[in-house]
Design a protein around this nucleic acid. Structure first.
Lengths: 106, 106
DNA sequence: ATTCAATTTCGAAAATTATGGAAATAGCAT
DNA sequence: ATGCTATTTCCATAATTTTCGAAATTGAAT
């Protein structure tokens, strides 16, 4: 993973609303959640939600799939794993941390 | 870890300059690096560097220790571990990921 | 074709962040 | 006290982000 991409993903998650949004999607599991359902849970205007969602999709942390008029959103676990891996490998020299996590994600 | 704190740390790391800066500190290891040395490595104006550094310190990702006129900066590994742990536990429901990393960091 | 529901795009204002020169401060040595 | 080095704070500017109402779009159903 390139530093630029990692930074973009970190920035995407580095907003309370988006982090909360991402968490909601994670908890929804493999079934995902329609944009409208997410809106119901978070209670933010649809246009604001759409912008935040786009940011997560653009950085590769969330995927979307059309089902008729509704858009199903899913947390992209491999993307998150790659990011955690980057942090562990590139940004955590602690002997206790980096090798252990690196192995766990392998 | 609270969502707010995690978001603040993610945002701090979500800037290419600051992520690079953090990486430099990680690579410096336990000896840390003086602000001036960091500046030499990254080649950015001191006032800009100071702002970015402050952000990392404020969010708990970097610590500083005075040695006469120079300030030694160190990556705060426990802080990073806590953040990685948060991401793994709260934001990564993937069966392959969360439990494994959680155990590795325990 | 019209309607309805779901979602995005447009457009614009407010807030925050990034950047860096210049001045201020801190600590030590002379 | 003066000077020197290291670093921060002050200040201003430019750029980006956040927010969200209103209008446009998409897709299905009548």
């Amino acid at each position: 993973m390139k530093l630029e991409k990692a930074a973009a993903q970190l920035e995407a998650l580095g907003n309370p609303t988006r982090l909360q949004l991402y968490r909601v999607l994670v908890r929804a599991g493999d079934d995902g959640l329609a944009v409208g359902s997410v809106q119901g849970k978070l209670d933010i205007p649809s246009s604001t939600l759409s912008h935040h969602l786009k940011r997560l999709v653009d950085t590769g942390l969330v995927t979307q799939e059309r089902q008729a008029t509704t858009l199903i959103c899913r947390a992209n676990y491999p993307g998150m794993n790659a990011l955690i891996g980057y942090l562990a490998d590139e940004c955590c020299a602690d002997a206790i941390c980096a090798p252990a996590v690196g192995k766990a994600l392998a």
